[in-house]
Structure formats: C-alpha cells, structure tokens
C-alpha cells in the first residue's frame, strides 16, 4: 500500500508538472505574423517586440547550457551560475555560522537563568522584528565593505530564531531530567552538556532550520543591493539585460538550493531527535 501510494504520488506530481509546463508553453507562443516583416521590424526584433514571458522550452534550453558549464568566469558581468550560487552560499554560511556561534551560547544562558531572560528579553523583542535589510546602510557605513555587510545582514537575520529556540528549548527541559542530574551530583557545566544540550537539541536544530531558510531568503535581496556577485545580483543583472529566461532559470536555482539547505538541516535534526 505504501509503495503504491509513493508510486501514485510520483505519477501525479509528474502529471501536474507536465500540465503546468504545457499551459505555460502554450500561453507564451510568439504571435503569428501574417505579413512579412518590414526591414525596420526585423531590426527591432519583430514579433518579439511584444513583451512575453519566455516559454519553458527556452528556459530549459538555457538551463542546459548554464548547467553544462556552471563555473566559467568571463569578467565581472558574465560568470557561471555555479560561481554566483557559490558566492551566495558562502555568504549565507559565513553569516549563519557566526550567528550560531553567538546565538546558541547566549540562548543557553537565557534559558538557564531567569534573570538573564528577563534582562535581555526587551532587547530581543525590539531587535527581532527589524527587517534585516534595514541594517544595510548602517552596516555599509560602519564596516565600509559591501561583502562583509552582506554577511552581517545574514548574521543579524539568522541569529533570532536560533536564539529564541535555544532559550525556549533549554528553559523547557523536563524537570525530571534536571533532577536526575542533580541527584547524580553533576556540576552546572556537566549538566549543561550531558543533560540539557541533548534534551534541547531538537528544539535548537529546529531554530537552526528556520534560520537557514530565512538567511537564504534574505541573501537574494541583500545581493540585489550590494551587487557585484551572488545569485541575487545575478537575478537583478539579468533583469537589467532583459534576459527573462535567465531570470526564471535563476529563480528555479534559488528554490533548489534553498530546498537542499533545508534538507541538510532536516537530516541533522533527525540525528538528535529522541522519542520519550
């Protein structure tokens, strides 16, 4: 039954995909020209003058070309998709890991100490709702480097879910388990590492998963602002080139990379999960 359910779901997915692509292809055919084009019309692109979204066949053709040679570098405005994605992933991971390095220990302290929780809560509540891009001008002014500013923006947007989830997970570790640590005379540090950390790990990992999702959302917008390299810059640059096929192709790539990042974190969560 399970197997047949899987098979049926694959078939259905495939049917939906074909239907959507077919619809998209049909709706975006170039208009038929009844009369021969004038020389002027041919020079101006003829029928293509009328704005239309490129059909999937055009996008797939471009995708095959781009993915066939993802790492070419022909100057600042012409780099392969692999290089652009690489820059984005590098920025996301740098900002994200930096955030994890700070958010998880602070979250631990907040979760373990009601005093710190009360003292730091107002700061978190005010800082958390700020759109990460709002920090960009300030970051550019202080850091004076667009690359580092983009990383900073990723850092500031991924810190909150990890911080809040870590604090929540640590504060809600079952009292029984803490009592087990206490009756076995474990010190604070040993309790933190042998009982609280494994008990809160699934919640912490959930926070990390939310963070990586947000970071990947934000990097596109951040790179549109700072320019130079990265998938966000690539999307905007192709828009300026009026190359909509490339725009659609890069949108797809953003989705696929985001899915992979989420899958990695979801696997990691499964490693630390436990059943009570």
């Amino acid at each position: 039954m399970l197997k047949s359910l899987n098979v049926r779901s694959y078939v259905l997915s495939f049917v939906i995909l074909v239907a959507l692509l077919g619809l998209w292809e049909l709706l975006n055919q170039p208009p038929e020209t009844t009369e021969a084009l004038t020389e002027y019309e041919i020079l101006m692109g003829g029928a293509d003058q009328e704005a239309r979204v490129p059909p999937p066949s055009a996008v797939l053709k471009l995708a095959a070309e781009e993915l066939g040679n993802p790492f070419y570098d022909a100057g600042p405005n012409d780099k392969g998709i692999g290089i652009q994605l690489g820059y984005s992933i590098y920025r996301v991971l740098a900002g994200y890991l930096l955030a994890a390095l700070i958010a998880i220990p602070i979250g631990f302290v907040i979760g373990m100490s009601p005093l710190m929780n009360k003292a730091l809560n107002p700061f978190i509540q005010v800082l958390r709702p700020i759109s990460p891009l709002a920090w960009m001008p300030l970051a550019l002014f202080i850091i004076k480097d667009s690359e580092a500013s983009a990383i900073f923006v990723i850092f500031i947007c991924s810190i909150w879910p990890m911080l809040v989830n870590t604090a929540f997970g640590v504060a809600n570790v079952r009292n029984d388990w803490i009592n087990v640590a206490r009756t076995h005379e474990l010190g604070r540090v040993r309790t933190a590492f042998t009982v609280i950390l494994p008990a809160a790990a699934p919640t912490i990992l959930t926070g990390m998963r939310i963070s990586i999702g947000i970071a990947w959302l934000v990097i596109v917008a951040a790179e549109m602002l700072v320019g130079g390299t990265g998938i966000g810059y690539y999307v905007w640059n192709e828009w300026n080139n009026l190359d909509l096929s490339s725009v659609i192709f890069s949108i797809m790539m953003i989705g696929i990379v985001g899915m992979i990042l989420d899958m990695v974190l979801s696997r990691a969560t499964r490693l630390v999960e436990y059943n009570e």
Partner: peptide, 20 residues
C-alpha cells in the same frame, strides 16, 4: 543540604534520559 549520590531516587515516571 541539596541532592547527593548518597541518596538515590527512583521516580514514578522513571526519568530515564530518552536519548541514551
């Protein structure tokens, strides 16, 4: 004063650490 290994406790709900 405070818990000690000289007094072992068996809790009603077992209190085993589920990840071990």
């Amino acid at each position: 004063v405070g818990p000690s290994l000289e007094r072992g406790v068996v809790f009603q709900n077992y209190s085993l650490l589920p990840w071990l």
